[in-house]
Amino acid sequence: MRHVDAGSCNGCEVEIGGAFGPVYDAERYGARLVASPRHADVLLVTGPVTRNMAEPLRRTYEAAPEPRVVVAVGDCAINCGLFAGAYGVAGAVADVVPVDLEVPGCPPEPTAIVEALRRVTGR
């Protein structure tokens, strides 16, 4: 699992942290944050993709080996949320990299995130 903050307001990071914490324990289902995109199978992308983060997101996506899954976490990642139309926003995550799974919510509850991760790990 590799987390990419493409412009989030760090609200989603709080909840993803909770999901990997001891209480919701996403690791119980085999989901683990790893040190390098090369080790990762899933990209957790949060926030609307700002103009400055479009290229880094693209490169992280290409650095991850096949088969890879992109999970867009939070309303901003799905449709830019309240930041739609801001001049610094390049678009939603789907406009930059192909998205496989979306987790709505601002920020989505840890239970929703863990549920999404379970569908990815299949456990």
């Binding site: 390098s36 995109p37 880094p56 490169r59 992280t60 650095a63």
Partner: peptide
């Protein structure tokens, strides 16, 4: 299997010598 899958160049890209290094 994956390595065999990678051996066949996909859609014109050469055998996957990725762009330089992890983004980090």
């Amino acid at each position: 299997p994956a390595r065999r899958a990678a051996a066949r160049p996909r859609s014109g890209t050469a055998v996957p010598e990725r762009p330089p290094r992890a983004w980090s």
